[in-house]
């Protein structure tokens, strides 16, 4: 059985960016945040929002800027020789 390409997700990404967490994952998250009082019920847990950080675009911009600078520095010696 095939799956439509739009429904496919890269492996690994889904696991880290899931918004629906398992109950023990939510408990663990609250514990790491220090928001887990001893003896708290494991029911009625607050919702946990997963924030997506878009780092890729910033990295691409830096790459675009870098090659533009390189020819400018390299061109200076040739112009002085002529």
């Amino acid at each position: 059985m095939s799956i439509h390409s739009s429904l496919r997700t890269p492996t690994g990404v889904t696991a880290s960016l899931r918004n629906v967490l398992k109950r023990f994952e939510r408990v663990r998250h609250l514990m790491t945040q220090g928001a887990w009082p001893e003896g708290r019920s494991v029911y009625g847990l607050p919702k946990i929002k997963q924030v997506k950080l878009k780092v890729r675009k910033a990295a691409a911009k830096e790459k675009e800027e870098a090659p533009a600078e390189a020819p400018a520095t390299g061109a200076a010696p040739s112009s002085s020789s002529s």
């Binding site: 109950r23 023990f24 408990v27 663990r28 494991v42 029911y43």
Partner: peptide
């Protein structure tokens, strides 16, 4: 009945 706390805490999972 209900999920037990022990299944969700410490070494439980």
């Amino acid at each position: 009945g209900l999920a037990k706390r022990g299944c969700l805490l410490a070494e439980g999972p």
